[in-house]
Amino acid sequence: MTDRATTTTRTPLMSVRGLTKDFRTGGLFSRDRHRALNAVDLDIPHGRIVALVGESGSGKSTLARCLARLEQPTSGQLLLDGRDVLRTQRRGASRAYRGTVQMVFQDPFGSLNPVHRVEHFLRRALLVHGRPAGEDELRELIATVGLSEDMLQSYPHELSGGQRQRVAIARALAVDPRLVLADEPTSMLDVSVRIGILNLMRRLRDEHGISMLYITHDLASARYVADTTQVLFAGELVEGGDSLALMDRPAHPYTRLLLSAVPDPERESGYDPVERAALRAAVLTPESCPYEDEGTCSRTEPVRHVIGEDEGQPHWVRCHLYAPATPTARRVLTAATPEAENA
């Protein structure tokens, strides 16, 4: 508990400030831009798992690719230990950066070269980063992710999906990273092995102190594995906070929509279809916020409002409904029952 308290006061391992990414759409000379990420602010503290949830197309993967320096952000800052790597390493990531930040991709079937043995992937990673690559190191590495030593001699096609994803994680761990970006690492895997990968992520955090950004659209798994959860909607972070608190008391309409969509037979009272439809409409066309008529919503860009604190984590939301504690806002959001503090 004390450890957690101190980690929050330290400089976060990675801070993202005002990250914006535009993609050019249309032809070669087109000036059309699509804004995939808009002014994203995000902290990834030491030894914590941060979940990033949102629908397809919300920009989750783009954010991870920007953090991994696979995409060049249009503007913004990427602070690793307080230093802006976008400024110091303009042309691309240095090897030191890659040694600190590693990425695990969604598809373990596509991310391992089929003509090499498992041993090769791990040894390459060690050699490229100038580390000893002896048998002992390989054995230790493969044991860390819960595979047996004889699998070092296997080819990817001889492994199951879950085992391949473990190899991909082992390869990321080879360089002893401090931050692992996991882009939907379980969505291509079978149910029976998903929990195993999630437990591995938890173990890596607890035993090795590795920070992670866990990208997913599976809210239940985010709740299971992540300390804090951030909700990304149309390229903007709209809500964030302690995972349990956020999913027990979702504040932003979009978060509530996401949660209402998760099948859960134990939930006694399902979401009202009328409310769902209103939320969906609000999400699809940002101009038609269902609460706008109530006079609580102005169309200006919302700012973050802190609505609570759990486990030392502020629970914030970007929605005008939470700005002033108006009677209307209280009435509309009775289900969420926020402690409407004036931020």
């Binding site: 879950g162 029976s192 998903r194 929990i195 437990n199 239940a220 798994s221 709740r223 949660l259």
Partner: peptide, 20 residues
Amino acid sequence: LMNAFPPLTGPRVHLTGLAD
């Protein structure tokens, strides 16, 4: 099989999943 899915409510419990 039911235990292989983390729940959306209640306290965070450790799940073991299924054997391979």
